[in-house]
């Protein structure tokens, strides 16, 4: 985040590393469910005020702008160890909040795009966004109970995904399933950088 400056004053304790992972997808694809299933704390929410003036946070006059609208950002936390925490951010699904994505995506490790086979087209914008910005991502096809099952190959063709983008079926309600998706994302990030994660 760029509104505050680093003052270099550290007192003894090591400051943990926080890694950011985005959870994207169309409206109702299960983003909030996935964040809730994985987070060790109740999913946290912050109401972000959006202004037409943009998000240049050093511009204090931004908060005085009268045309504001509010959107909730979901996020959850997974503590890996004392020095390392993962933050999962559910991106706003509505198109009009695109500009929030830039801040969310800034410095993100990677993204999970959730696809709902009943409304596959809803995740096109997320995929476009991450492809354009070179943010590594994986696609999780969320298996809704009443959805027609398609093979992963069919979904991949429909989404016109690059062959190296990992894709898997998942159940956003299930913690294990969500973990599998995150692990495949981190492995994909490592491959993306040309250094595969050694198998544990």
């Amino acid at each position: 985040m760029d509104s505050v400056r680093y003052d270099g004053e550290r007192r003894g304790n090591r400051v943990p590393i926080a890694l950011k992972i985005l959870v994207a997808g169309g409206f109702g694809a299960g983003k909030t469910t996935l964040v809730s299933a994985l987070s060790e704390v109740r999913p946290l929410q912050t109401e972000e005020i959006l202004t037409g003036a943009g998000i240049d946070t050093d511009d204090l006059s931004g908060v005085e702008t009268k045309t504001t609208t509010t959107v909730a950002m979901d996020f959850g936390r997974i503590t890996i160890n004392d020095d390392l925490q993962l933050y999962l951010f559910g991106t706003p699904g509505q198109d009009r909040f695109w500009f929030l994505w830039d801040e969310l995506a800034f410095g993100a490790l990677g993204a999970v795009v959730l696809a709902d086979t009943r409304r596959l087209a809803d995740c096109f914008p997320s995929i476009d966004y991450f492809e354009r910005r070179g943010v590594p991502f994986v696609v999780g096809v969320n298996c809704f109970d009443d959805a027609r099952r398609f093979s992963l190959g069919q979904v991949r063709r429909a989404l016109d995904l690059d062959p190296d983008v990992p894709m898997m079926l998942c159940d956003a309600r299930d913690r294990q399933s969500g973990k599998t998706v995150l692990i495949s994302l981190v492995e994909h990030v490592a491959r993306h950088r040309g250094q595969p994660v050694p198998v544990a």
Partner: peptide, 22 residues
């Protein structure tokens, strides 16, 4: 404490710790 550039491109040890932790 602003995350450093290195945090955005964490090294392999960090990624491995994340996978193991998950």
């Amino acid at each position: 404490h602003q995350p450093s550039r290195a945090t955005y491109l964490p090294d392999n040890d960090i990624l491995k710790a994340v996978v193991d932790g998950l």
